[in-house]
Design a protein around this nucleic acid. Structure first.
Lengths: 202, 202
DNA sequence: GTCTATAGCTGGATAGAC
DNA sequence: GTCTATCCAGCTATAGAC
């Protein structure tokens, strides 16, 4: 309902909100129109079809997630600090946008082709290979315990992202509200770094 | 298409498959009928509505996931072995059913009320409180490093479940097929236990 | 119990006035 | 560019024959 912005932007904003909440199949064009404070016909006027509108929102989400990660992975800094940076970056970004990962993962599963297309559009997108080489090197230098780089990457990613994917489940089981969840996630930045570095002690 | 089983069972079987794959909003009654090798009208004859059918499938999924975990959490065994049991149990179960967690998490997010209703129906369902007490005790005994029990539970769960939630993403980025993924998950049982126990060394 | 046919509605998309 | 009215496909659900 941002009366300041132009219609195109308003629509994208509204579409983001509805699609991330309901998914492609669950979202209604009427919902998006209502959220944007405009008429349903306008959506088609500007973006032709539901699928086209979705693709824009989805690709934007992918790029947002990936670009962030990529810059850190490529950065030159000592290994433990890099781990710290990755974790803090993820948790901060996802605290601001908790529904994003579940949305992305669900839609990738529903339609892997669209994701792969977008992956290939951005050349050499996830710069994870270099980071994995770093893990092997550190292991050989003896700075950290030797560990399969694929598994370590999975561990770091899992522990950073999964709590947000499982947020409603955690909240129901542990009976905690949004404020408490935020606090746990804030605390988690420190805990996770400690945990991972402890696991990697030679 | 199990010609042996009775129609009720065939329908549930088919509904499981389609719902876990497409979600509630994405699934079509026609798909389920086709999968079961029967007519669309039969679905309504046996289960009245799409929502009713879905609720049965969903609750069965919840119970399957929970019951398994609960028995292990309640079991009496040394702490490190319990961790091993939890991880191996999860990874084995999810290897046989990789789409289950994403389905459950997505639908909980769409409709938390249904999940909470089912949670309350099973009394004292997730027996996680006892396990968290165990974590604190072990920390005070000095057998493991002191750590917030909530955070440790999140870590264990995240690392066990998330790879399956993110399976299509991993496969696309790392360009691996189903066989390779299975191997990595099989290997992961050992790696994870090592990783966690290493992180918990006092 | 099982099928065909169809009612009834929802929701994406378009026509056309302004 | 924006709105109202409307079309039409696709879907859930039911009626009714067998």
């Amino acid at each position: 309902m941002n009366a300041e912005k132009n219609t195109e932007e308003q629509i994208i904003e509204a579409a983001k909100k509805i699609f991330t909440k309901k998914g492609l199949a669950g979202a209604r064009m009427q919902d998006i129109a209502d959220e944007a404070g405009i008429n349903k016909a306008m959506l088609h006027y500007y973006y032709r079809s539901k699928d086209k509108l979705f693709e824009i929102v989805f690709n934007e989400a992918i790029n947002k997630v990936m670009t962030n990660l990529n810059t850190i992975l490529a950065a030159k800094m000592p290994f433990p600090e890099k781990i710290k940076a990755i974790i803090e970056n993820y948790i901060t970004a996802l605290t601001a946008n908790p529904q994003l990962p579940l949305f992305v993962l669900h839609e990738i599963t529903q339609n892997p082709e669209m994701f792969i297309r977008e992956l290939k559009a951005r050349v050499g997108f996830p710069n994870v290979a270099a980071f994995m080489r770093e893990i092997v090197e550190e292991g050989e230098k003896g700075t950290i315990r030797k560990i399969s780089p694929v598994q370590l990457v999975m561990n770091i990613l899992s522990m950073s992202v999964f709590p947000f994917v499982a947020k409603p489940l955690f909240q129901a089981v542990a009976e905690i509200d949004d404020v408490q969840f935020r606090m746990i996630m804030e605390d988690r930045k420190r805990v996770l770094v400690e945990f991972i570095l402890a696991a990697l002690r030679p």
